[in-house]
Design a protein around this nucleic acid. Structure first.
Lengths: 346, 346
DNA sequence: CTGTTAGCGCCTTCAA
DNA sequence: TTGAAGGCGCTAACAG
């Protein structure tokens, strides 16, 4: 009778063979395909069949194998996220929002950490594309040529975040770091400051903000701006050290920091030197949101809404996942902007 | 001549069919299996064959499909990490260390965020097991029965971190939160404090530390300890609010916080009330490492080395991956400990 | 050292 | 609405 001897040996070992669609189908008394449908497209299955299947799933403890499903359907329900770092990171909120939204939509998230290295990013991209993700999110817009090529060839939605560019790989959601530097310069000049100091970690976007700030100051006739670049990650301690260097050398009227964490370190150093903020020295941070705002009345900051970036990135991906391949060619360029929050005048 | 007509249609579309092992094999002039070996177990392949294959890989731009590979070999080279949250998180360092080490070893990391909900954790575990990860890391030791069952049945290494228990699912790496509460109580009592206040977010481990602290104080004859529990996440602002409540009601001599971020908020509130720390009120944080240490001279804290936890978790996984299935039954229970850092006496 | 065969577990396609 | 056949791309196991 048996058309084919079961290839699965009757297991005598304690290792419970993993339950497959076929096992569920047997228990439910339907074809494997029907189980698949009941699970993935229930609207195509009569409700009593549906029930039989679900009962069988519970009875067997079946967990669908997404490797097999993904291989067969070329849909992995996987989104990769690549960022420089997660420790003490300005990206934390973005990741949180992104992961939350994607999880809710039934996608899982692969996390890769590049440590601000485009070479490492390239290696990660290659490895990750091996998983055939349905989409990928990258922090920043600066990548190696090979990375861009691979990403383009992969023909999946690519979202670059936390920066802006005129030549995105696909979709880009962020703001201009040059514009941040420029606006911060103008804002502080308007308030009458003339001697500036900058504390930044060695992060490409932070450096660009700093350079743009200096460029704008130059335009306005201010030539010498002390620019302290310290190794990442941006910790309170690093902020303190940077501030110490500036206080010892340049005695700036205002210190601009590449992140709020650094700014808090600067505040700590100022306090330890009995310097009053902002009277003796003003401090400007970057990043904000749940950290510094409302808490340090003397701290100004550039506020960036990381949560919005994460949510928009998720939206961008999800809308493309549903869409037809042709509409794949309609990427977006979203400027989420930033705002300068001035605690002194609040 | 052709044993079989190529099943792959000659593509006229612009969509470049993705390159497979077979394509590489053709170009290299070897069998597909040889390509597979050259890529995964090069030591089994003669070096000139090896070279032919690598050249063909480069020429074709081949990216191995890990879904297919995983399905065939039942090895996914994937590790899942489940934590409550990543925003403002005490886990950031742990994740960083874990991801770094695993990436280096050729594993990729799936990130799931549970928001302190065991129900959500259960759903995530189920979804994630569908990817057939080679291992899984969970924050905490408190899970639903279904989660524990599924995890046990999955027969993969499971590492619970940032807590300790006598009944781990498998391996557990962390420290006792009860012990933290107790030691903090004793430490502060020794220093002469008698009126305590606690600010905690609604996080199970933070609450356990707080309860243990209170229990120990009771033992020592101190009955009334104000315990403010605020909704997560732990931000500076929440710390400020908690402190404000305590200052208005209880006027504690010392405030113990469930995280350093909260503690910093408490410092800010104290400052705004012109209270001197630690003279008027002492503040004890939790977590530390790159954040508070060395920066706030007035802040005491419980130091936990999140990086070590992450590295040990990675080690635990990697050693089991290499090992024989039988040695799978030798889990570990590692107490990474903690230390109380007292800035006042430093 | 290299090749052949036979699936891994699921979904697409087509037929009933 | 359900079922049967075939293959997604790769690797284990064995043969040469």
């Amino acid at each position: 009778m048996a058309k084919k001897i079961s290839s699965r040996p009757i297991s005598l070992s304690t290792q419970p063979e993993s339950v497959t669609l076929i096992d569920v189908a047997k228990v439910a008394g339907v074809a494997p395909m029907t189980v698949s449908r009941a699970l993935n497209r229930p609207e195509l299955v009569r409700s009593d069949t549906q029930k039989k299947v679900l009962d069988a799933v519970r009875a067997t403890g079946y967990v669908p194998n997404m490797l097999a499903g993904g291989l067969a359907s070329s849909k992995s329900r996987l989104v990769a996220i690549l960022l420089p770092t997660i420790a003490n990171s300005i990206f934390a909120e973005t990741v949180q929002a992104l992961v939350d939204k994607l999880t809710e939509a039934g996608y899982q998230t692969l996390l890769g950490l590049t440590a601000y290295s485009t070479a490492r990013e390239e290696a990660l991209v290659e490895a990750i594309l091996g998983r055939r993700p349905d989409g990928i999110v990258l922090a920043g817009t600066s990548h190696t040529k090979a990375t861009v090529e691979r990403l383009t060839k992969a023909r999946i939605p690519v979202v670059e975040i936390w920066d802006l560019t005129n030549k995105p790989i696909d979709t880009v959601i962020g703001f201009s770091h040059e514009e941040v530097g420029k606006q911060v310069a103008r804002h502080l000049l308007d308030k009458g400051y003339r001697r500036f100091g900058i504390v930044s970690v060695d992060d490409p976007r932070g450096l660009r903000r700093g350079k743009s700030l200096i460029a704008e100051l130059r335009k306005q006739g201010i030539a010498d701006t002390a620019f302290k670049i310290l190794p990442a990650p941006a910790t309170l301690q690093v902020g303190r050290e940077g501030a110490a260097l500036l206080f010892d050398e340049a005695r700036p009227e205002v210190i601009v920091c590449s992140s709020d964490t650094l700014a808090q370190g600067v505040l700590a150093e100022a306090a330890s030197r009995k310097l009053s903020v902002p009277r003796d020295v003003a401090v400007m941070g970057f990043g904000d949101l749940s950290t510094a705002a409302h808490v340090y009345p003397s701290l100004s900051t550039v506020r960036v809404d990381g949560t919005t970036i994460g949510m928009k990135a998720a939206d961008a991906l999800l809308s493309r996942f549903g869409a037809s391949p042709s509409s794949m060619d309609m990427p977006a360029r979203i400027d989420t902007g930033f705002s300068i929050i001035d605690r002194e005048s609040a």
